[in-house]
Amino acid sequence: MSRTLRHDLPIHVILGILAILTFYPFVFMVITSFKTSPQFIHNFWGVTWPPTVANYRDAWHRISIYLANSTLVSGASVVGVLAISSISAFVFARFDFPGRELLFFAILSLLMIPGVLTLVPAFLLIKSFGLLNTYWALILPYISGGQIFAIFILRSFIASLPEELFESARLDGASTLRLFTSIVLPLSKPILVTIAIMNILSTWNDYVWPLVTIPDGRRWTISVGIVSFSSQYGGLENWGPMFAGFVIASIPLIILFLFTMRYFIAGLTSGAIKA
């Protein structure tokens, strides 16, 4: 046995137990998603064969609309957040103008305001705009709220870029827009991806706000939809399709994770620490 392994072995044992405890419910979910109800009752723990793929067809019928809604809402929100926050962060980081500190503080102090405080008036505002039951009820507040943290992170990143880059570009006669598209955007790409992922994760998982502003079940996002779906199928003891629905609901973010794992972990650690 190598020295490394001998040193690591007790750690592997503990981490292994923690991993099993963490993942068992998810493994159980996947196994059960392939069972019919009688199979589940008679064989609670084991894997049954052949797998009941019909559960997935059944669940997809109900879940797909919520996934489409969530993709639209989270997609539009993240585009808005990136566009608006990168411009504002650029201005705060690279230009000197009267009121800069005050305006930046006005954005930063919003990090202190809890969502529960604004819930009621924000709902009434959306209602007075006639936006209840529309995707805008979600997208606009998501952009507004999401840009705060994004500006905060992006500003310090853009401020850390060397001034010489901007200086030489200006001497070549580059406009402000040119500085933004040719210097700021390409160099901030990794951090923009990280911000995008954090933002998608938070809008995808939001529950209370869509519940309040979207009474119409056809426009629900996945978070609201899956709870209603789960209550309905669970209430009927229709466990196989219920768990199949859970698996389907998890797939989009897992795919996103597979392609952007590096940024994901970087964002969850470094991004959070800077906050």
């Binding site: 919003l110 405080l117 009621v120």
Partner: peptide, 27 residues
């Protein structure tokens, strides 16, 4: 001299005034 700056910050501030400051103060 930096008219542009304020112009570029407008979207950010329109949104936070409407969806963050107004609801918080209203509450």
């Amino acid at each position: 001299r930096c008219k542009e700056c304020y112009l570029l910050l407008t979207p950010t501030f329109v949104l936070i005034l409407l969806f963050n400051y107004y609801p918080a103060l209203s509450a």
